[in-house]
Nucleic acid binder design. Structure first.
Lengths: 201, 201
DNA sequence: TTACCAAAAGTGGTCAGACCATTTTTTCTG
DNA sequence: CAGAAAAAATGGTCTGACCACTTTTGGTAA
């Protein structure tokens, strides 16, 4: 019956045309309309909340969340990680996503034209605060693959704290090379600069 | 507190070393051990059940399910895969892992020497049963990154049924090229053959 | 002893009610 | 009309109860 209530809730959301951000009927109303008890309704609601499909505010109500905010991929990633998290594999897999993002950007001239590259270039030159994590995240965001980004974020959680530190002056050169190569579409050079920089850690 | 209980349950499963198929403590025991009420424990359990992580049998108990049986993918598809972009991302991410596996193998002569390549080569030539899925899986297994394999297996669950079909005679050529290129360490050629083959679908 | 069956205990499924904390709405007061 | 106080609504938690089903236990008969 619990799964049935989840289905009924999905149906109700569709029928009532409840949009993201809007409020769902209260728990007490739901258990009347679905002809069940509040406990059962709550079990279904909490399940949907774990998935990030809805959000409950104490005293306020239950709201439908934005589609993009779903935590499904996050949960999926965290479970895949839990099974096999050999440190080397986590790093290797994270780098897989980083390298492919850079490759993809080099191949797509439209992505290389994004204002982000100029911005990053300037940041490095001016020695503003910029971490490895930020830089790599921007690369993957620019690649436009949101799933890859979500997976990378999960993998990143395991990586060395070195990534959270600001980029040291000594590292400026390879980073600049990396950015310039990406911006010009030099795939091979970008990946090599990327490798060189990665192995400095 | 509900999310906290989910965490505590995951922790408990890890600490007690409960293996897939084994029984979890009963709801009444859990709410004592976690110092909470049965309702709260049930809300957490039902959430994990919706994800397919556990399974409750009426009168029997609650059991930890096999990792492969998780319904994460199923849930994922029913909730977010309705969006075009998301589907594209899944395929793109799967191909990221496939390409990087091939690249890595090409670069490591020790991996290219694995007997699996001769075996696959023979299978294609003899027109034995061989699916795209099997072939790609063998590549990723050979790359030695178990985490990448796990992620790929999850993503593979979405892919077209075409992957489950045997490789047609017309496709033999690019597949042979792919295998030969990998075996010889011709990275560029391998990836191009791989692309050519992928786009045939 | 062994096989079988019934009773008992254990367990998840559902429900009802209560109380609390917080937010929202209404009402009252200046 | 504005602001504050009261009331209502809402989610969060807990307790106890009963039901349906399964597992275990114990005893009885072959």
């Amino acid at each position: 019956m619990f799964l049935q209530i989840v289905k009924q809730l999905k149906k109700l959301i569709a029928e009532e045309q409840i949009q993201p951000g809007q409020k769902l009927p209260s728990e007490r109303v739901l258990c009347e309309r679905l002809n069940t008890s509040r406990s059962s309704v709550r079990e279904a609601l909490r399940s949907l909340e774990l998935l990030g499909i809805i959000e409950s505010k104490h005293g306020g109500g239950t709201f439908l969340k934005n589609v993009g905010d779903h935590r499904l991929i996050e949960i999926l990633s965290s479970f895949i990680l839990q099974q096999e998290k050999t440190v080397e594999d986590v790093h290797a897999t994270r780098e897989i996503h980083e390298r492919e993002a850079i490759r993809f950007i080099c191949q797509q001239s439209s992505l290389r034209a994004l204002p982000i590259w100029d911005s990053l270039f300037t940041q490095v030159e001016l020695e503003e605060e910029l971490t490895r994590e930020t830089l790599l995240r921007e690369c993957i965001i620019a690649s436009g693959n949101r799933l890859s980004l979500k997976i990378w974020l999960q993998l990143m959680a395991y990586s060395a704290p070195t990534y959270k530190e600001n980029i040291a002056p000594a590292e400026k050169q390879p980073v600049l090379m990396l950015l310039k190569s990406i911006q010009l579409g030099y795939e091979i050079e970008a990946i090599e600069a990327f490798h060189e920089w990665m192995t400095m850690i």
